[in-house]
Each structure stands twice: as C-alpha cells, then as structure tokens.
Design a binder for these strands. Structure first.
Lengths: 231, 231
DNA sequence: TTTTTGCTGATTGTCAACAATAATCAGATC
DNA sequence: GATCTGATTATTGTTGACAATCAGCAAAAA
C-alpha cells in the first residue's frame, strides 16, 4: 500500500449521509418519471432495495415532504404528491413572475457570450420543431429557461425556479404536447432573447411572463382564475 | 364512563406524528426568536427536553432543512441557518414580485369588507407609530401583508410568502427599527390600500412591489445589486 | 511558550426491535 | 350475492443500542 492508497482509505469517511443520497435519488426518480403522482413509497421495500435501514428512508421522505414532492399521511404512508389543477394553475402564476424577475435583472447586464449561448438553445429547439422531436425540444427548453435564471445572478431565484419546475412534474398535463405548441413556444423564446439582447428590462420581463402565462392560459384560463377543486 | 367518554378514549389514536409536532414547535421557536441564526440544535438535549426519542427529532430537522430554516452538516449537527446579506437581498427581490402578484390578482376582486379589514390594520399601526410601539406595529404589519395575499385566493402564493417571511427571521437586520421607518411604512400601506380599493391591478401591484423593495434598498441598494459575500 | 499528538467523551448516523394503526382477508349473517 | 364482523397481516411511528465521527482536552515534543 502506497501513501496515496493509505490516504484514500483514511479518507473513506462519511461525507454525505444516506439520507441525502436517498433524497436525491427519489428526486431524480420523480424528474425522470420513474415515480408518478399518486405512487406510494413503501419504506420497507425501499429500504430492502437500497440496502439500508428504514431510518434514512424516513428522514429523506420528511425532507421531500417539505419540498412538496411527497405527501406524508400519518399511519398510512408516503405518496408522491398529486398536483391538482388548481395548484398547478397557482404554480404557473408564481413561476411567471419569478421568470419575469429573472428577465428584469438580466436584461441590463447580459453579455454577448450569454446571448450566443441562449441562441444555440433556440437553434436546437428549432430543429426539434422541424423533426417534431419533443424529446429533443424538452431538455433544451428547460435549459434555456434555467440559463436565463442562472445568468440573473440571484441564486435563490435559481433554486426556487428549479424547485417549482421539479414540482410541476407532479402535474399530469403538458402544453408542449399540444399540436403546434413547440413552434409557438420557440417563437416566444426568440422574442425573449431579442428583448434581453436589446437590454430592455421591462419588455424582457413581460415577454418572459407572457411566455409562462400562455401555457397557463391554455390549460386554466386567465390569471386569478382557478379551476374548481377536483373530487 | 358514558358513551361520549368512550368515544373520546377510542379516538385517542395518533392523528399527528411527533415529527410534525416537533417541526412546528421548532418553527414557532424561530419565529418567536427563541432560536436564533447560528444556534445549534442538539438532538439528545432536545429529545430529553421534549420527552421523545431522537428519531422524530431527526425527521423534523430533515424537514426544516428543506424549508431552509436549518443547515444540516453531516457528522456535526443541525444549526439554525444564518442568512447572509446576499441571500437576504435575493429573498427581498423574490418577495417583492410575489407580493406584487398578490396585489395584481386582488385589486379587481377586492370586497368592501376586505378593504375595511385592511384599513383596521392600518389604523392600529398608526396608533403604534404615534406611541412608538414597534411591538404593536410589527404583528399588525405582518397581518396586513398576510391578509392581502390570503385575499388573492392563490393558496400556494400564501404559503410561499409565509415561508419566505419565516425565513427572513434568520436575517439579523431589520428596517422597521430605523428611525421614522414605521411612519413611512404605514404611509405606503395607505397607498397600497388606495390602489387596491380603486381596483387598479397595475398600480396596486407596483405599490406593493415598491413597498418591499424600499426595505431592500435601505439595506442593500437597487435590484440586481448584491452585497459581497461575507467571510 | 507554542505546536503537535493522542485519547476521551459527546454527538451524530444507522440499525433492529417493539408498539400502534390501517388495510386486507376470511367467515358468518342476511 | 351483498354486507358485516373479527382476525390477521402489512406497514408506519417510535425507541434504544451500536458504530462512526468530531470536538475538546491533556500530555509530549519542539
């Protein structure tokens, strides 16, 4: 055993808890559709599957509860949360103003390099539109939005938007599925980028807000209007 | 034992977990200043004090971690989170647009009764200003804002604003402490209510946003400007 | 005196066992 | 067959024990 080997072995301490690793894995599974709204998380089964005890599973689930990804019902179990239409409608409204804020902060300070990067996403999305490839469009759409928020420099806004996005996975209906929706969406991306590149905070802000609200309106109607509670 | 007594005894089942009760108690302690930023939560001491085992304490802390109220450092413990200036500045920006959204939704639909209720808070705050009583001003200030968001009808916006408010307790500096600040704040409350009562969504929205951002600017400067990271 | 090393105790992370609760199943009754 | 009742099983909530890690302190070395 060399000195480097000894160093590696000595450093094999707990740098992340099982709880954290499990929480992240469950988040990933929600994002990737391996867990769907309404699914039940069985502590015993998960513990057996991951080769750990139930304690860290429970701890991870209490974290996910506060993230809004699961619903914990006492004595009955943990369920992947089902986002009702009303909740989704409310979330869209919040997302709209948060993205608008990102645009408002970014527009005065956006760099030529950032503009070029965002343009690349738009170009990829355009080819996805032309080949009708939602699997190509979707990740680039997401990255386009994420980059705008990241460029704004408000880190909390970034994490908030990502959490809201993760939560939107719990809602069943999607607007990009609608016919022609990808093209409309990408046209809107172009308008957003044009306003950002022109360093116009107010119009960049309102283009971004409108972009999100267009989706909301397609599903639920105008701001302030909430679908009835589902049974 | 009468039939009512038997019913009560039979219903003495677990309707809320210790985990939930503990989490709420810790949240209350943060809100009431009984726990301050940087304080360490000792699992054993808390468990002894509350007469429970460490398991539910740990679970509660994992929830609070995701709420942003505590920082969990592996193998070292749980600390009430310290909100740095930069983080607070970012939070103010987000709060501003969320309150603005509430105003925009509420202005077209606000009722005379709601207006009267909000006016009552303003009146109480005015007497608090005149007797220089921050302890009277502060809760009414909070309720004024909470009511606006609640009246908007967007429940998620309501819970989001409350969570952000709770998180602001982790930041040490306050603007209402500044001389003359209460009077300025209440003047702004009046302007907000006037715009809401006039059913003007755009100006109600911008009065609310400005109200929050005035505090931010007093502490950190204009939107998009972030204080340097503290050591 | 200052710095380094080693030990001890405190605390955290995980595990397995027990108690409580809800869901499911089987049998009885209508 | 449909409904009700009681028993059983599965699962969740909590507890206490053990292992791992870190912080603090005392002693040794420079």
């Amino acid at each position: 055993m060399t000195i480097n080997d000894a160093g590696a072995a000595l450093h094999k301490r707990r740098t992340e808890s099982m709880t954290t690793l499990i929480r992240r894995e469950l988040e990933r599974m929600v994002e990737h559709g391996e867990l769907s709204a309404g699914d039940r998380l069985n502590e015993n089964a998960l513990a057996a599957r991951l080769g750990v005890s139930r304690g860290p599973i429970r701890e991870a689930c209490r974290g996910l509860e506060q993230s809004g990804l699961v619903t914990v019902i006492v004595n009955r179990g943990v369920f992947i949360r089902q986002l009702e239409s009303r909740e989704a409608a409310e979330l869209y409204e919040i997302r709209a103003v948060l993205y608008a804020l990102a645009g408002r902060i970014l527009a005065p300070i956006i760099t030529a390099q950032q503009i070029a990067e965002l343009q690349q996403y738009i170009d990829v999305m355009q080819s996805a539109v032309e080949s009708n490839d939602l699997n190509l469009f979707y990740p680039n759409n997401l990255r386009f939005h994420e980059e705008i928020v990241r460029f704004s420099g408000n880190e909390r806004l970034n994490s908030e938007c990502m959490a809201l996005h993760r939560e939107m996975h719990l809602f069943r209906r999607r607007t990009l599925d609608l016919p022609g929706r990808m093209q409309i969406s990408n046209d809107e991306h172009r308008a957003i980028l044009a306003r950002l590149a022109a360093h116009e905070p107010a119009s960049a802000s309102s283009e971004l807000e409108r972009h999100v609200l267009t989706s909301r309106e397609a599903l639920f109607g105008p701001v302030g209007h909430y679908p009835a509670h589902e049974s």
